Simulated assay, not measured.
Amino acid sequence: MDSNQRTILVMDADQRSALAVTRALGSHYRSARLVTADVSATALAGRSKYASHYLRYPSPVDQPEAFVCWVKANCLNGQFDLVIPTTEVTSQLLLINAERLPDLPMAFAPYSRVMQLADKSRLVRSAQVLGIPVPLSRFYTRLAELDPTTLVYPVVLKPSLSKIFLGDRWLSTHVRVLHSAQDFNRVCQSDRYLAEHPFMLQEFIPGQGAGLFCLYHQGQAIQFFAHQRLREKPPEGGVSVLSQAAKVDQRLQAHASALLSAANWHGVAMVEFRIAEDGTPYLMEVNTRFWGSLQLAIDAGVNFPVQLVSGFFGEPIVANNHYNEQQRLRWLMGDLDSLYIFLKRPYSFRAKLKRLVDFAAPRFRNQRHEVNRLGDLKPFWHELQHYFKP
């Protein structure tokens, strides 16, 4: 089939990563039919000019059985040549139900292989075998195994799974940095899932985060990309709202390659590290899906969605190891949130003034906005409507 005549379904359409996928594929495959879908009546990627149709499905989080039934009824009879989920919950739910959804066209590794990386406890053990630096870690299957009198603070409490599937719903977990016994007791009360589900205690590594973005095809490394976070929400560290492409750190690439090759990885992955004050990169986690700042890579010249689709259909995958390292990406509404939080914090007047000037200063070269784009403005109007909705 001509690549331009294919029909592709992009799920989780209210995610910024889904918007990036939709725009990237729509720009590259001019005549392809791109269908977007999510749980709400309208969604970010659904408003893009590249989306030919929008579908609404039951919530994969709160109604997983109804969602699987929807997929079975709407996606297995050749309606779509490829289905692209863009969140952890949706992708894992589809993989968990692979036997019920035979021949669902997805560019993912099998569920068992995904969990080699998505399960943080298994990931750390694999890294230890491979000689990849990880924080000192202790493993527990449930809270009752832990003697709190042995804790040395600060310590990081990290559930093995970010999302736990309970059969009829999904449970979100949280990584906690504990600074005292009071913190520990508070977390035990709030995070009740610790009583029944595995977690780790890891030493706290002072330093800064770093990520490596990867594409593998049937165990073979195809593409690596890196970026630098310039501003985040919240300002002390979190989601990137202003970022810039960066040169791939060869140490991070070596560690990521060892890990992904050992897992015989297939598809995209974001490998996260924490760079300690002495320069040692410690492995933190791996996200087995498209990431929030995907649009930056595309703008810099690394079109991960097109590479993924090309590989799925057996076409040549064009890698780019000489992308524009000066390219920046700004998520305007996220940056506005970050500014508001910063101005409310007890920083000095000078620091607040500088932050305000940095926010307002225009940049005309090598910077694009993530959502608001002149040639495709409807997603931005959608974002504005929801941003100011009471």
Rank of each mutant, 00 (worst) to 15 (best):
G267D: 02
K247L: 14
L194P: 04
P235A: 08
M200Q: 13
N264Y: 01
I205M: 10
D191A: 15
H174P: 03
K247P: 07
Y216V: 07
S261H: 14
P235W: 03
L178N: 07
Q250W: 04
L242Q: 04
E203N: 10
A263G: 07
Q250D: 14
E232A: 09
V239T: 14
S240Y: 06
A245C: 01
A256E: 09
G219K: 15
A181E: 13
H227C: 01
P206H: 01
A246G: 00
R186Q: 14
E203A: 15
S240C: 10
L260Q: 03
L260V: 09
H255S: 09
V175K: 08
S257V: 02
P206C: 09
G237P: 08
V177E: 15
A195M: 00
Y216S: 13
E236D: 09
C188N: 00
S243C: 15
H227N: 06
L259Y: 02
H179M: 07
A246I: 02
A221N: 07
S243F: 01
A246W: 03
F204Q: 15
Q223D: 09
F204G: 09
G207V: 03
G267A: 03
R186F: 02
S240K: 01
F224S: 13
K247H: 10
R251G: 00
L212H: 04
L260D: 10
V187F: 01
H266C: 05
R192H: 03
S180V: 10
D249Y: 00
L178Q: 07
G219I: 04
Q189Y: 01
A195C: 05
M200I: 07
F225Q: 02
A226Y: 01
L215D: 14
L259G: 05
H255W: 10
V177F: 10
Q228F: 00
P235V: 07
E196Y: 09
A262Y: 14
Q202P: 09
L252W: 13
E236N: 12
H179L: 12
Q220I: 13
A181W: 03
Q202V: 06
G219D: 12
C214R: 02
D191W: 14
V175T: 15
Q189A: 13
A221V: 12
L242T: 03
F199S: 05
